[in-house]
Design a binder for these strands. Sequence first.
DNA 1: GGATCTTGTTTTTCTATGTGGGACGATAAG
DNA 2: CTTATCGTCCCACATAGAAAAACAAGATCC
Lengths: 267, 267
Amino acid sequence: MWDDKQMPAKPSTGQPGGDGAAPGSQTLLRGLAILEAVAGGARDLAGLSAVLGTTRSTTHRLAAALVEQRYLTFAPREGYALGPKLLELGFRAQQASPVTRVARPHLERLSAACGDTIHLGVLEEDWALYLDKLPGRRRIEISSRVGERQPVWSTGLGKALILDLDEARWRGFHRLGPARGAHSPDLATWLERMRTYARQGITYDREENEPEVRCVAAPIRDAGGAIVAAFSVSSTVQYMDEVRMEDLTGTVREVARAISRDLGWPG
Amino acid sequence: MWDDKQMPAKPSTGQPGGDGAAPGSQTLLRGLAILEAVAGGARDLAGLSAVLGTTRSTTHRLAAALVEQRYLTFAPREGYALGPKLLELGFRAQQASPVTRVARPHLERLSAACGDTIHLGVLEEDWALYLDKLPGRRRIEISSRVGERQPVWSTGLGKALILDLDEARWRGFHRLGPARGAHSPDLATWLERMRTYARQGITYDREENEPEVRCVAAPIRDAGGAIVAAFSVSSTVQYMDEVRMEDLTGTVREVARAISRDLGWPG
DNA sequence: GGATCTTGTTTTTCTATGTGGGACGATAAG
DNA sequence: CTTATCGTCCCACATAGAAAAACAAGATCC
């Protein structure tokens, strides 16, 4: 399930049930749905039509338009695939945030040094939005996607993003979190940890968001000292025992400082 | 058939004159045009409407749909910007090609070592398509974009991509090239150079594609020995005199071999 | 401080637009 | 050869979406 939207918004077979939520531009939305279906693995018209709930002819026309505009590619025996225009726009979107560009070289050095998966993210609405990802060199890879949103309160990266907020806001974020069970701490425990994190300027995630995944994260500040982004170093628990997390802390803090300084932070 | 020349698709003020060339899905195309307009710098409805040739209300509906689907973002005082969904799809499109993923670390090392702009590309139809770009650390940056297409015959990267083809095909590619004037070599000279390049397994671009820009490029081969991609190291002429190009040649060839080997090339 | 631009948002009317059924020609499978 | 399955093309009809205009909310001017 690549599509975990909270709104059902399931475009079924044109049923005018009056469920609302269908704003205005059907054709455009269907076209975009095709893009996502292809990203999700659909490769032929049949698959796409099934996802969209449209007939082959309709699907074909939309897909053909997308191919013509280079948003998709089509190869006779291979089917549809994401096209070069998405490469371009994605790259542009990434470059649009100065943080990504500035942070990249620093994160690359960090990646080379530690071999773990590194994420860069910002706060968008009430979510942590991943802007960049540097895959690790471990056997097991963290399955996350650039452009994806993760809950703020449970991820190391998310917690780093809200490190400067007051306790009332913190409570707000904790309330947003769906009870993941298992490793999810209750409010009191979580707040206590957040206070510690804020004092240290570093956050941890000890399998709170995803079992077996741990990470160390730190906020990135701009010239005004405000937190504009954060990055995290993630690995599975076997590579991330308490000792290693301690060890990483210093490096992570240092890299965060270096990036922030490049953004004009007096430090 | 599906891939004809780029239609400018300039939909002027609703002219139903029937000039033909009207593909099919207007709404979708307009939506995509909005994405590109935003990528091109348009930030408000007025600007977008001007580019599309539609009224504000129409533009707004499309833009709102794109925002809702996270293809665009909108901030009250900032205007529209490319959204996280494009990050995600762009990243996916990039990952779809195994070459990009395999080549990345190698190219990063190369980038760190030489400081010049590095491009990775493949052959798409009759063009060199840029899959990845690692910006250089020079004062002047090469203005190229991931997802963009460049002529094959004049770029170092393009020439590396067709290094294995026979001379008849080479002629075909040379014929495609628009007479850029100035540094453009005639067919005989160009073929002669290509023969040399093919013998050396390395190609050069001495300001043939873009004045002041030079580069050294090499092909990347897969397990079967076929050229599946190529990369180039580019810089302005002041950083790329003959001596430097000679020096780079060895390194570039080595990196190309390393990447090819990672792809299963026996080498 | 109120008048007046200039933004983005919403509503309504009407027709151009896009839909889906079905036909066609490949190519692969039985 | 026949049959199933692709992508592609065509066309009549109804519906989706374009545009005009009203609305709301800041910003800007005087």
